[in-house]
């Protein structure tokens, strides 16, 4: 049976990020979530599995907290979930992430299609799919807006900055999908209940003979602050407020 792997990332919910007075970042009380765009990747993998009459599975690389994501991922239509458990995921760069995912994919055996999102909602580096292609020496199609599969031929429409491209590839292959490719439904109660009964496989770091040390050295993380005037026109009637706004914009020379 064909196997379709959806790669996803368990990320910090950016709305939980706290900024300290010195602009350093406090992530201690932040909750996790499946990266927003990876929900599209999971849905695309589930759709591809229907076309291929195969089995959609999920794969993630994260620290021990990421285990909480497996049920969520499985409730979205995946049949099995694979989890590479490593504290090194916290400091992973694009190379480490791709190397870890690639090694796990090789462990799984035959894979027909790997689906990634174009980028993760925390780093949005857009490296995973192309790098996975290099690690596994598989063909890659990025910026996928829609796709169809006939037999073992996948035809995709890519949306690039200035053009649409129709391209085709013989599977196995890797695709990176754009967020607009689909609208993942919110899992129903039954799907959530069933998720816990599905197969979950954990890889320990030691199981994967791969170097998980990043090539970059992170020097500094600082809150991004926009210097803005923050003037709210609240005096007088609405008409007056709008007038004051127009006066201010004229002074700025932008109208």
């Amino acid at each position: 049976m064909a196997r379709i792997v959806a790669c996803y990332k368990w990320v910090i919910d950016e709305s939980d990020i706290k900024v300290n007075p010195d602009l350093s970042i406090n992530l201690q009380n932040s909750k996790g979530k499946i990266s927003d765009y990876d929900k599209n990747a999971i849905e695309a993998a589930v759709n591809a599995a229907e076309l291929l009459e195969g089995k959609p599975v999920g794969l993630t690389f994260g620290n021990s907290k990421c285990k909480a994501s497996l049920k969520d991922a499985l409730s979205r239509g995946l049949e099995e979930a694979y989890f590479i458990n490593s504290e090194k995921a916290d400091k992973a760069d694009g190379r480490v992430t791709a190397a870890a995912l690639a090694t796990a994919i090789q462990e799984m055996g035959e894979v027909d299609l790997v689906v990634c999102a174009e980028g993760a909602s925390d780093t949005y580096a857009r490296q995973t799919a192309p790098r996975l292609g290099a690690c596994l020496d598989l063909p890659v199609i990025s910026s996928v807006n829609s796709f169809t599969i006939e037999g073992k031929t996948l035809t995709a429409i890519r949306k690039l900055d200035d053009c649409l491209e129709t391209v085709k590839v013989e599977l196995p292959a890797i695709i990176a999908v754009l967020p607009e490719i689909n609208h993942p439904p919110i899992p129903g109660l039954k799907a959530v209940m069933n998720a816990g009964k599905k197969k979950m496989v954990e890889f320990a770091e030691a199981d994967l003979k791969v170097d998980l040390n990043p090539k970059n050295q992170v020097l500094d993380l600082q809150a991004y602050v926009m210097e803005r005037k923050n003037i709210v026109f609240a005096d007088g009637e609405l008409t007056e407020q709008v007038k004051n706004l127009v006066i201010a914009l004229k002074k700025e020379g932008v109208i």
Binding site: D122, K215, Q217, V218, L221, Q222, A223, Y224
Partner: peptide, 12 residues
């Protein structure tokens, strides 16, 4: 990173 909340500096 983090959707615009954080600026990261890294060295190679």
């Amino acid at each position: 990173i983090y959707g615009g909340a954080v600026r990261q500096k890294e060295a190679f």
